[in-house]
Design a protein around this nucleic acid. Sequence first.
DNA 1: ATCTCACATAGATAGTCGTCAATATGTAAG
DNA 2: CTTACATATTGACGACTATCTATGTGAGAT
Lengths: 105, 105
Amino acid sequence: MDSVAFAKAIADETRQEIMRLLCCQWLCVGDVVERMNVTQPTVSHHLAILREAGLVNVQRDGKQVFYTLNQDVVAICCGTIMQNFAPEKVNTDARDLQMGQLLSA
Amino acid sequence: MDSVAFAKAIADETRQEIMRLLCCQWLCVGDVVERMNVTQPTVSHHLAILREAGLVNVQRDGKQVFYTLNQDVVAICCGTIMQNFAPEKVNTDARDLQMGQLLSA
DNA sequence: ATCTCACATAGATAGTCGTCAATATGTAAG
DNA sequence: CTTACATATTGACGACTATCTATGTGAGAT
């Protein structure tokens, strides 16, 4: 998963809203649809993009399909981007200090 | 700077290539152009997008305009995204451990 | 088997984006 | 005040994207 593909996958308001819904919980497609202001095919489309990017975990249960956000991939991709484009902010000897600043910003 | 705007700004191969060039050094537009395979207007266009996103610092020197990547903004935005979409990976008590795993992945 | 429900896919359309050639702007030099 | 140079802006064009309606698919339930 390269940085460009990851950025493209999350570069959409609707998609990030879906990601927020799927963060730390499993929801089926219908649940997502009824919490948003777009149609079911639109949700399905965005879920497909997130799925192909490896950003969501999928599990079928009967007629329903459940999704949840893959936090590991998000974290790893963000780490890669920071290593690529903010190397001076993630140097080894001051890592946790810097992270503390970043996370409180 | 919200996560969507940041993602859109970096969601392009050419732009990330420019960002790599401008990481940790100042380059004028001409220098960027001659290291890439796109025309000067294209580089100027992408620099404008990065500039409006606050991702580059700009400094004029005579006829030339120098750019460099703003690593702080990159780091802060990545931190925001991780807080939004990978909260379980950046919790306080295991922060540096998790970061160590991420950065070595 | 048929029906129904949940989800995915296809097709159409409007809007956005990346790129280039051409031109404008602005800065320094002669 | 031209001239030359570095960068920015404009306009055009093709490619991609987000959304919708309509339809397909696949898994229980009757």
